[in-house]
Write a protein that binds this DNA or RNA. Structure first.
Lengths: 202, 202
DNA sequence: CCTACCGATCGGTAGG
DNA sequence: CCTACCGATCGGTAGG
């Protein structure tokens, strides 16, 4: 995160982005003012415009710079277990744990959908999908115990399963419903998916 | 939707809500102004305040009045197939078809999460869960071919599966990724879930 | 239900 | 990087 060779300008720029992420997560994009971002960054309002041309440019910079994809992809590549079941199972657990402990990117994605109608998301997808889809293409080709034969479906359902866990978690956050949820909810949740894509019992 | 006994005031009120839903879906809550809602409803700005005390009151009214739960619950109760597999499978397809053709409520839910931090959602959950959870409790008790034994997990994963299909659909909407997706994506998606919760091949 | 208005706050900028 | 300011727009209201 913090490199040694940071200039003061780079540090300030990052401070602005961090402040903005925090405020966007709490209030959304349009309900967050440049004055709030300035104050939270310890700057005067005008100072922000030395680093960003507009409010939207801050958001765009965040979407790129704070993307967890740099964290997630190494996980997917490293977490390889002996079998594919272990691999996907481990990967799912680690990714979910990462995204629930630092839920900023999922929130940013939802802000994108709600307040920008997905305007920036498309470009991002175009960059990421070609890097992850091959992993799932390889899985589908080499592993004979997979029920799912279409890589795009496997990828979509994998991401969807992770998203659905995190979003249902957000929905229940303030509610009493959490009491109904068993302790091993995450295990049970991932297990349903794993069994869903496999031919054999795991 | 439209009853015979509507007064003019009720009709105007509904017109305001419909306009607001449309605008909220497009821009989110905070980026939609009362003036936009007024114009879209064919009213002067001040006229709105004869029906709603504030902008937030409009949103709250929408969350209650436009809730698809009144549409969805009858579906869940009616769509009963011969087996549970058929039942859940049919229910999932119908609910998803309903929510993708009229995605307003999923969008409203996301607005709730993003712009209100789930402030209104908790109360709503408290009302709905007690009505739907029993269905899943009954399923878990009476059907022996279910792998999932915790009703809360079954309900959460069912809702999560539906949400994840719709949200990944929203994400891909503007992108080229749609080309990668096979025609039968919905069938394949639901099939993974069905196989995931069942003991036996379906 | 509309007209005309209020104070507050917004994103952004000039000038130093 | 800050101060002081701009026009525009916001949610909401009084008065009829």
């Amino acid at each position: 995160m913090t490199e040694e060779t940071q200039t003061k300008g780079e540090r300030t720029r990052l401070q602005i982005e961090d402040s903005a992420v925090e405020l966007f997560m709490e209030n959304g994009y349009h309900a967050t003012s440049m004055r709030q971002i300035a104050e939270h960054s310890g700057l005067a309002l005008g100072g922000i415009y030395n680093h960003f041309k507009s409010k939207e440019e801050i958001f765009e910079a965040i979407v790129v710079d704070k993307h967890p994809y740099k964290k997630i992809l190494p996980i997917l590549s490293e977490a390889q277990g002996d079998t594919m079941e272990e691999f996907l199972n481990n990967a799912a657990h680690i990714v979910i744990k990462e995204l629930t402990s630092q839920p900023y990117y999922v929130k940013l994605m939802l802000i994108e959908i709600v307040e920008f109608n997905g305007a920036h998301g498309a470009a991002l997808l175009k960059e990421i999908v070609p890097k992850i889809l091959p992993i799932f293409e390889k899985l589908v080709k080499t592993r004979k115990n997979l029920r799912v034969t279409q890589p795009a479906i496997l990828l979509r359902s994998f991401i969807g399963m992770i998203l659905s866990y995190i979003i249902t978690d957000m929905i229940m956050a303030n509610s009493i419903l959490t009491k109904f949820m068993p302790k091993n909810a995450l295990d049970a949740y991932v297990d349903i998916y794993m069994h869903g894509i496999m031919k054999t019992e795991i």
